[in-house]
Amino acid sequence: MKAEPTGPAGAATSQGGRTRNRRGEGALLRDEIVAAAERLLEREGNEEALTLRSVAREAGISAPSIYTHFADRDAIVEAVLDIAFERLRLLVLDAVGSVEDPVQRLLAGCHAYANFGMDDPARYRVLFGRQRADRPAIGSPKDIGELPEVWRHRLDSFMVLVDALAECVKAGRSGSTDPFADATAVWTSLHGAVTMRQFIPGFPLPPLGATVDDLVRRIALIRS
């Protein structure tokens, strides 16, 4: 039997001469593709910069190599979305983790969310500003459990907000009778505060920190 040609360090190559991935290296290449897409997004500041050619060039591979791991450009964007949602969740959890007072914990999580939007505008716009054909419709709390698993995971950072408001109610520090609905109103208002500052940067808005405090205290019916 004819021996299969080998590349550097004994790695098997295809008939066309391209070095094949060793066992287990496919996942590594996938991660490199996603990392390249993240770098492009951060550097260029908009999702339009993510094309198959640009991502492949950034990763140092040929464009056809991407198809082994991603069906198309949108699949790469979805992978970037997963990482960004997880990053947001960890930022919120880190902000609230050592805070004992329930009101201050709620405020800390909301400040972390707003700061993420202002500090990382490109990723924020990909998370909450792009049109999605499969976007989930959330009509009431019971619908959360009916969402696809990927969206349940992506909403984990929002559920931290819901839980924080529920703790305020439990401690007698909030007059909310529906923490889920009121947390949704807080989230919507925070999103508006962030996007107003991103898209109308010269408008004389009050400082973001003061805005977050005011919105949360009023909408979550916080009792001092």
Rank of each mutant, 00 (worst) to 15 (best):
A3C: 01
E4D: 12
T6I: 15
G7A: 12
P8R: 15
A11V: 07
A11R: 15
S14P: 00
S14K: 14
G17H: 11
R18S: 11
R20V: 01
R22G: 14
R23F: 03
E25M: 09
G26P: 02
L28Y: 04
L29A: 08
L29G: 00
R30Q: 14
R30S: 11
R30C: 02
I33F: 09
V34W: 06
V34L: 04
A35Y: 01
E38H: 10
E38L: 13
E38M: 11
L41H: 08
R43I: 06
G45D: 07
L52N: 15
R53W: 09
R53K: 13
S54F: 03
V55Y: 10
A56V: 06
A56P: 11
A56L: 05
R57A: 15
G60H: 10
I61N: 02
S65I: 05
Y67E: 00
H69S: 09
H69F: 14
A71K: 14
A71H: 12
D74T: 01
A75H: 09
A75Q: 09
I76H: 05
A79P: 01
A79Q: 11
L81D: 14
A84M: 07
A84L: 11
A95R: 08
V99C: 00
D101Y: 01
D101Q: 01
V103G: 00
L106W: 10
L107Y: 05
A108Y: 05
C110R: 00
Y113D: 09
A114W: 05
F116V: 00
F116E: 13
